[in-house]
Design a binder for these strands. Sequence first.
DNA 1: GTCTATACTACGATAGAC
DNA 2: GTCTATCGTAGTATAGAC
Lengths: 200, 200
Amino acid sequence: MAKSKGTKNLDTSTEEKIIQAASKVFTQKGYVATRTRDIAEEAGINLALLNYYFRSKEKLFQLIMAEKLQLLFSVILPIVNNDDLTLDEKIETLVENYINLLVDNPDLPLFVLGEIKANPEGFKDRLQVRKLLQNSSFVRQLRERKPDVEPVHFIVSLLGMTVFPFIAKQVLFADDNTFKMQMEERKVLIAKWAKIMLET
Amino acid sequence: MAKSKGTKNLDTSTEEKIIQAASKVFTQKGYVATRTRDIAEEAGINLALLNYYFRSKEKLFQLIMAEKLQLLFSVILPIVNNDDLTLDEKIETLVENYINLLVDNPDLPLFVLGEIKANPEGFKDRLQVRKLLQNSSFVRQLRERKPDVEPVHFIVSLLGMTVFPFIAKQVLFADDNTFKMQMEERKVLIAKWAKIMLET
DNA sequence: GTCTATACTACGATAGAC
DNA sequence: GTCTATCGTAGTATAGAC
């Protein structure tokens, strides 16, 4: 993932330590609220090294954000474009994989959506989610199954049921353990609900 | 809403102008990203006046946030606690009123949830949403209708379908006009879907 | 109440020794 | 590559004139 220099291939190289720390602090607090000093401390390195390796806070952020977007897309795209999966199979796999990802990265949705809103211009190019979905076999299958409902409505509902609990975690759920347990329960529930939404 | 001094009861008093400006800028950019200078400029007043009226950025923020929480609760609480409404009526009214509120205040969800996550301690007292819901007639009705499903799962799905489009607006929707139109469509769609989720 | 000018602090970034 | 020390800037808040 990181470019491997010829020298010092220890896996916790300073560069990697900074990336790990930045990933953690940025996703927890967002761009403006994180101080480069936080990242340096979290990484256990000196503040000056951060600029030595990544030139600026902004550049480091770009790197982390690209990783996170990649992470989110890598779950969705292979599924919605897989012609070998039935609509129901797509729904099941999507929910299962997405909840797995979010349980491991609960801060991801609020972080990514918050940064996009804070700087919409910076994502105009990288985010053609709409176009990617538009031509997917997922949307094609949705139109076949329910020609009277715009696919976006179903997709937003499916994503909402899946992602929203992680966004509203602090407000709606008590402790971390029951939260994780209930997210496991949701996998089958959402899949079931999504399917009957398509049957009416 | 603002305390009316004896002097100068013009409805765009300086105090009110600052509140309006702060409300706009804070909800758009969040606490850390807004500069008191932004608020002053937006209000068309001098920076020093902000501190004269509200002592600090922090105090002004508390005021705005309290207003916003009040706004969100004022839509939910009267409905979920109304014993005269059937479960289906509650669902319809909740979705209708909430989408109406969010169409007028599209930044509200991301703002409130973002600030709560940024400072969870500051909301420990004010936010007993779980307890308020727990004892509501809404949850009681849900338990009666579907004793085998934890009410939280249904509530999170209902809220997710309703609120999530406003959170992911920038990513999933094109222009503002079709967005508003589609949110109108969603009112009946979500209510319909929520009801069949309770019938299985 | 409203303004100008400024004090104070926090942060990002860099220079320069090792 | 890594550190210490410091510069420059931006932001909150206040002092003091009007």
